[in-house]
Simulated assay, not measured.
Amino acid sequence: MNYIRTAMLLAAMTALFMGIGYMLGGPGGMMIALLVAAGMNVFSYWNSDKMVLRMHHAQEVDERTAPELFKMVRQLAANAELPMPKVYLINNPQPNAFATGRNPQNAAVAATTGLLDMLSPEEVAGVMAHELAHVKNHDTLIMTITATIAGAISMLANFAMFFGGNRNNPLGIVGLIVMMIVAPMAAMIVQMAISRTREYAADRMGAEICGEPMWLASALSKISGGVARIHNDDAERSPATAHMFIINPLSGERMDSLFSTHPNTQNRIDELRKLAQSGLGGQGYGRAKARTQSSGVSGPWGGGSSEPPQRPKGPWG
C-alpha cells in the first residue's frame, strides 16, 4: 500500500504540474512540463532528503559529537527493529524535529537545538520515536517528494505572470491569475491531507517504540508552545517542508481544520493519554535500562516532580 500511495501522489503532483504547463503554453507547454516533472520525480527519489536537510542547514552528528542523542536514537531504532538512521542536528532555537529518506536503509532523523534545550531526555525520546515511526511506516519518501514537488509547483505558479502575454496560453491573463492562486493551494491540500492522517499513526507507533505515550504527549505540548513563540526563518523560506515536522514550524496550529498541515495538538495529546490509560507505558525507551540512562529519574512525570532533569550543555545544545 505504501508503494501504491507513493505512486498515486506522484501521479497527482505530475498531473498538477502538467496542468500548469498547459495553462502557460498550451499542449506544448504541457509536454515540456511532463518531461520536467518526470525528471523531477526521478531526481526527488534519490536526492530530496539531502535537499530538505540542506534547506534547514542540518549537520550530521555521531557518537562523538552528540553522544546522548546518538545513543538514544540507536536504542530506539533497535526497539523499532530498524537500521540505524543518520542523525542530524539543526542549529535553530525553535523546538522541532523531522525524519527524511527514501527508505529505512537510507533514513535520517533531525532535531533542532531548541528541541534538545527545551525538552527533557525522556521527551526527546518520545519525539525521536515518533520520527522513527515515520521511517518504519515508509512515510519519509512520500513526505520528502511531496515537499520537493509542491515547492516547485508554487515557484512555477509565482512565475506565471511573466508568461501572461504568451499567445499559446489558452486561458489568458484571467486564467493565469486563477492558476497562480489555485495551483499552490491544490499542492498544499495534497500535503495536508497526507500529513494529517499520517501523524496519528506515527504518534501511536512512536509511543509503542519508546514505551511511554506520555513522554510524547508532554513533548508535543512543549513543542507547540515553543513554535508559537519562536520564529523559524529556514521554515518560513521553505514552507513546502512544513508538513514534515512533528509540529507545523510556521505557526502554532489551534484548529483541526481542512487547512491545517497537522492535526490539532491537543487532539493528539488526548489520543496519547488514551493509550497510556489502556496500559501502554512503564517500560521506557531503553526498556529496563531507560531509568538509569536518564539522570536517575523515570521521566517528567516520575519521582514526584514534573520538572525535567538538569543536564549539561554540549551534545544537547
Rank of each mutant, 00 (worst) to 15 (best):
M8S: 07
A12Q: 11
T14N: 02
I20Q: 07
I20F: 01
I20K: 01
Y22H: 12
G26R: 08
L34S: 08
L35Y: 03
L35A: 14
V36A: 14
M40Q: 05
V42T: 11
W46H: 12
D49P: 00
D49I: 00
A58E: 05
T65L: 11
E68K: 10
V73D: 05
L76G: 03
A80D: 08
P85G: 12
Y88L: 08
Q94G: 09
P104D: 11
V109K: 03
L115D: 06
L116K: 09
P121S: 14
V124A: 13
H130C: 09
E131F: 04
N137E: 13
T140L: 01
L141E: 01
M143P: 00
T146S: 15
A147E: 04
T148G: 01
T148I: 02
T148C: 04
I149V: 15
I153W: 01
S154R: 12
L156C: 05
F159H: 05
F159N: 04
F163C: 08
N166W: 11
L171T: 13
V174G: 10
G175A: 11
I177W: 10
A183G: 08
A183C: 10
M185L: 13
A186D: 04
A186G: 03
A187G: 15
V190M: 14
S195Y: 05
S195N: 11
S195K: 07
D203I: 04
M205A: 15
E212R: 03
E212M: 05
P213N: 07
W215H: 13
W215M: 07
L216H: 03
G225P: 05
G225C: 06
G226E: 07
V227A: 08
A228I: 08
E236I: 07
P239G: 12
A240T: 02
M244N: 08
N248T: 12
L250M: 12
S251D: 08
D256H: 14
L258A: 09
L258G: 07
L258Y: 02
H262V: 11
H262K: 15
N264P: 00
Q266E: 13
D270V: 09
S278Y: 01
G282R: 00
G284Q: 01
G284H: 01
G284E: 02
Y285H: 10
R287L: 05
R287E: 05
R287S: 03
R291W: 07
T292M: 09
Q293L: 15
S295L: 12
S295Y: 14
S298I: 02
P300K: 10
G302W: 02
G303C: 03
S305Q: 15
P308S: 12
P312Y: 04
G314T: 13
G314D: 14
P315N: 14
